[in-house]
Design a protein around this nucleic acid. Structure first.
Lengths: 160, 160
DNA sequence: ATGGGACCTACAGTGACTTGAGGTTCAAGA
DNA sequence: TCTTGAACCTCAAGTCACTGTAGGTCCCAT
């Protein structure tokens, strides 16, 4: 078990970068591939070598992703940090639309929680033929209340 | 503009089934392909013809999906309805694990909501270089509190 | 007979990665 | 110096639950 290679304060390997950002190595490589993270320098043998700028940028990306911003929004936010003289209206718009998305999901998940809780509560064990859970699922007139056009939308997904 | 074809109480087309279950036609075909919905009879010309049993089964599937059960769970639940003499323990286990998933997501989304609200609140307009939103995202020591091993897990996804 | 909506198959694309195969490089210990 | 084996490399395919497209066929009211 040896220590990580090329591990200084200024320069580190992809594995070390992953450790510092709680990000999988493959994910880092993928962010590079899709242009979120600039291609780093390489060793003679072809291993990636990162510096503090990469670390900061990846931290930014991870934080934004953890808040549920889709990659396109992350890209737009990164572009803003690269041009600090521009107005930050766009950042505000992206953040508040993400807030709206999250609030909407909270409302819908709460509805699901209530129905699931009712289901599990009603089931008193026994045979599948008499199971309340299965009955509820089979009930044609179940009480979901999404608007028609958004009926089946993303209720499974709830993807931030 | 003609009325839907072969549209009786007992037998109907894929389009009519979709209308009755709020389910897209392609999705129905896909459920058939992956074995959730049995292959229906066909007309001479090859059009699918469904009956009440298909309608009931698809309603069941849609309802379970809307509650966020993954397809494998839906498959297991359907298997139980097909064997009503078996114990419903499994249904109970599936429902309560789904409830736990939803509750976990609610907790995490609430955390996100608070942080996003704080961010948008703090931003008072101006130039990107001074934007609170961008600063917060860039802040290395941001206050997310997920456990280490679940840190970046699905915070973007929040997939039910 | 005709027009055109509804249907058919087959395949590609989505988001955001994850997993796998198969091979190469690096650094520590002997 | 050599060996070991974790960490690295590329490329390709798989995940989930669909959605969308292309190019054709069928059905049925007029």
């Amino acid at each position: 078990m040896h220590h990580p290679p090329c591990m200084t304060a200024q320069s580190f390997s992809i594995g070390e970068l992953g450790r510092r950002t709680r990000c999988k190595v493959q994910t880092i490589r993928w962010y590079e591939e899709v242009g979120l993270l600039p291609s780093p320098a390489r060793t003679e043998g072809g291993h990636r070598v990162y510096g503090p700028a990469h670390l900061a940028r990846l931290d930014f990306i991870r934080h934004a992703r953890e808040l549920g911003f889709p990659l396109d929004a992350v890209r737009a936010l990164l572009a803003l940090t690269d041009r600090p003289e521009r107005e930050c209206e766009e950042a505000h718009a992206l953040a508040s639309s993400q807030l709206a998305v999250v609030e909407d999901k909270l409302r819908r998940l709460e509805t699901l929680r209530v129905e699931l809780a009712r289901m599990t509560d009603a089931c008193r064990g026994g045979v599948a033929g008499e199971c309340r859970i299965l009955e509820t699922l089979a009930d044609h007139s179940h009480g979901h209340c999404a608007s028609p056009e958004h009926a089946a939308v993303d209720a499974a997904g709830i993807t931030a």
